[in-house]
């Protein structure tokens, strides 16, 4: 069944394509969500000097590897955008799939990391540090997962040179998720 193309796809009342504008609005709201979590974490961390006993047990190597993975997936996302600009939908879809694989690698590493921490007794309720750790990283992981799912839908269309403007839109979201991790990494893994 064919659906009519939404008018917002081709309309631009603001000088910015409506789809891209919507992504920026999503990001604006996400800044407040992640900003609230990270701001609260920083304040509590400064008010609780004893937390360094807890943060000493986060896995810096896993965090650094995951940062490399997300930075590389962001590179693939922007290369997908570049391919979409050149109207090469197949290439754009290929880069989007590479980006999704980056997200998958990130989540697998996170899974092993969390399993090890939980086995050692560092759970969501063992200490407020770990509550922040699992909440912030879990919320971020959920955004990675959501981005991966949306990206697969966009890649499926892009492969047939359809709706190529969406490649840039999902890319902007993915880069934002990357930026959030760029701040989570030093806060949770470097500041021991």
């Amino acid at each position: 069944m064919a659906f009519p193309r939404p008018i917002a796809t081709t309309r631009s009342a603001t000088g910015i394509p409506t789809g891209r504008l919507a992504v920026w609005w999503v990001i604006a709201s996400e800044i407040v969500i992640f900003g609230g979590v990270l701001g609260s974490y920083i304040m509590h961390r400064l008010g609780h000097p004893d937390w360094h006993y807890q943060s000493a047990h986060t896995n810096t190597a896993a965090g650094a590897f995951n940062t490399l993975v997300l930075l590389t997936s962001s590179l693939f996302a922007v290369l997908a955008h570049q391919a979409a600009q050149q109207k090469d939908g197949k290439k754009a879809a290929r880069f989007l799939v590479f980006t999704v694989l980056g997200g998958l690698t990130f989540l697998i590493v996170k899974g092993f990391e969390w399993a090890s921490e939980i086995q050692h007794g560092y759970t969501l309720t063992s200490n407020t540090f770990w509550s922040f750790y699992y909440t912030a990283a879990g919320l971020h992981g959920f955004h990675v997962l959501a981005g991966m799912v949306i990206m697969l839908f966009v890649a499926a269309d892009a492969r047939h040179n359809r709706e190529l403007q969406r490649v840039e839109n999902i890319g902007i979201y993915w880069h934002f998720v990357d930026v959030v991790w760029i701040f989570l990494f030093p806060l949770l893994y470097i500041a021991k």
Partner: peptide, 16 residues
């Protein structure tokens, strides 16, 4: 934390 360091492992159970 200090007790756990002396014992040679982490301190998962510190109070919230």
């Amino acid at each position: 934390g200090e007790a756990a360091e002396k014992a040679g492992h982490g301190a998962p159970g510190a109070a919230p």
